[in-house]
Simulated scan of single mutants.
Amino acid sequence: MEALKAPFPLAEIRWRVGFRNSNNTRGSALAYVDARTVMERLDEVLGTDGWASEITPISSGDGFVGAKCRLTLFLEAGEVWREDFGAVPESGQEPLKSAASDAFKRAAVQFGIGRYLYELPTTWVDLDADGRMRETPELPDWALPESERTSEPEPERAPARTRRSATPRARWRD
């Protein structure tokens, strides 16, 4: 299971802009991996028959399209599963596909896949006129595979209370 938690190669990390300042010239840079990268990690560690996912569409009724993912790992000790939800505005491109991908990645994080990305320090970057990052942030060495690290090992990570928390993607209403 530790192999699931290993940092991804830098080439697999993608970035998006999170929070923005009031004049849209600076934003927080959020690192993520796409769903195919998560699938490849599961295949590498468990084999193609060592896991399964089940997606269930959910109607939130508030302008969002939602999906629930149950990710099951088939281990020697038996099956272990985790569930999570994803939601995107229904006005987006392929909203159900996006919500399903989000739910899948969120379920995978519960097994430790990519969880370290939530521990990255908040990094603010300059944005261009279109709101895109002018430069790609650098990851700290501890967030890279050993083969890609450039310096001495860093000291212990910051305590959990100072880590950046996951940004909620949507709010569900009853």
Score class of each variant (00 low, 15 high):
T25Q: 02
I58S: 06
G27F: 00
T123G: 03
L139W: 02
F85G: 03
R134N: 06
T150V: 05
A52H: 11
R106K: 15
A143D: 06
S98H: 12
A11M: 08
N21T: 00
E146Q: 15
T48H: 10
R41W: 04
W51F: 04
E79I: 02
D128W: 04
V80R: 15
L30E: 13
K105H: 07
L96M: 10
R106D: 15
A29W: 06
V65Y: 10
P57Q: 04
Q110H: 10
M133Q: 03
M133A: 01
R164M: 10
Q93Y: 13
T136C: 01
V125Y: 09
E152Q: 12
S22H: 08
S147Y: 00
A87G: 06
A67R: 12
A129R: 15
Y118Q: 10
G50T: 00
G86R: 02
P89Q: 00
I55L: 03
R106S: 14
E156Q: 14
D126Q: 14
G112Q: 06
V88I: 02
G92F: 02
K68C: 13
R173K: 13
P155S: 10
R20N: 01
A87C: 03
V33S: 03
E154V: 01
D126W: 12
G18S: 01
D62E: 11
V80L: 15
A29H: 05
Y118G: 11
S98T: 12
E40R: 15
T162V: 14
L42G: 04
L73D: 11
E83I: 12
T150N: 12
A35R: 03
R70G: 08
R149E: 03
G18T: 01
S101E: 11
V109W: 08
T56G: 02
D84V: 08
P145Y: 07
F111Q: 07
S165P: 05
K97N: 07
E148F: 02
D62W: 10
R132Q: 14
S91P: 00
D34P: 02
F104S: 10
G61Q: 05
T25K: 00
T167K: 14
